[in-house]
Amino acid sequence: MDEWLKHSTEVEASWVTADLTIFTVREGQLMVLLVERGVEPFLGRPALPGGYIQKDETLREGALRELWEEAGIDGRRLHLEQLGAYGEPRRDPRGRVVTIAYLALGPDLPAPVGGTDAERAYWAPVAQLQSDAQALAFDHAEILSDALEEVRTKLEYTAVATAFCGDSFTLSELRKVYEVIWGQVLDPSNFRRKVLNTPGFVQPTGEQRLPPTGRPAALYRRGTAWLLSPPLLRGGQQS
Rank of each mutant, 00 (worst) to 15 (best):
A104P: 08
P110I: 03
I143T: 03
F42P: 09
L30F: 06
P49I: 03
E70W: 07
L232E: 06
P212I: 07
D74Y: 02
Q82T: 13
T213G: 11
A13D: 04
T116M: 10
C165Q: 13
A159W: 00
R192D: 02
L67Q: 08
R215V: 09
K55V: 11
L67R: 09
K194L: 01
T170D: 03
E69Y: 05
A104S: 07
P107T: 13
G235L: 13
P46C: 02
V195K: 00
G38D: 06
V32I: 02
T205K: 03
D167A: 14
V185A: 09
A147E: 00
A135L: 08
V113H: 12
R221F: 05
R193M: 03
G28Q: 03
Q82E: 15
F42E: 09
L228M: 13
G84A: 04
K55S: 14
A135K: 12
L103I: 03
T162H: 06
R152K: 15
V16C: 12
Q54D: 08
R175T: 06
A217V: 08
R77D: 14
G183N: 07
T198I: 03
R209W: 07
G235V: 11
A101M: 00
L219M: 08
Q130E: 15
L20C: 06
Q130W: 09
K6W: 10
E40N: 05
R222G: 06
I22E: 02
I143A: 02
E179G: 05
L233H: 12
R76V: 01
P49Q: 04
L210R: 12
S189I: 15
P188D: 08
Q29Y: 09
R152G: 07
R65P: 03
T99R: 07
G183C: 03
L59N: 02
E70P: 08
G114P: 10
T17E: 15
W68A: 13
W123Y: 05
S145I: 03
I100Y: 11
T170F: 00
H79M: 05
T24S: 12
G62W: 01
A124C: 11
I73P: 11
L78N: 08
L33W: 02
A137H: 07
R221Y: 00
T17K: 00
R221T: 10
L155W: 08
R221W: 01
D56T: 12
G72V: 09
R91S: 15
S239Q: 14
V202W: 08
S145A: 11
A159T: 15
R209Q: 10
A163R: 13
Q29E: 14
A111W: 01
Y220C: 04
V16N: 12
V16H: 15
E40S: 07
I181D: 02
D146K: 00
D2A: 04
T17V: 01
C165Y: 00
V11L: 15
Q237L: 08
V39D: 10
W68K: 12
N197G: 06
G38K: 05
L43R: 07
R175Y: 07
P41S: 09
L103F: 06
Y122V: 13
V25M: 01
R65D: 04
G44F: 02
L20I: 11
L155D: 06
P212G: 04
R209A: 14
I22H: 01
A101V: 04
L34F: 02
R65T: 11
T213F: 13
K55I: 11
A101K: 00
Q128N: 10
V180W: 07
K55G: 14
N197I: 00
A124F: 13
S168H: 12
A18K: 01
P231W: 11
D19E: 13
A118C: 06
A217T: 13
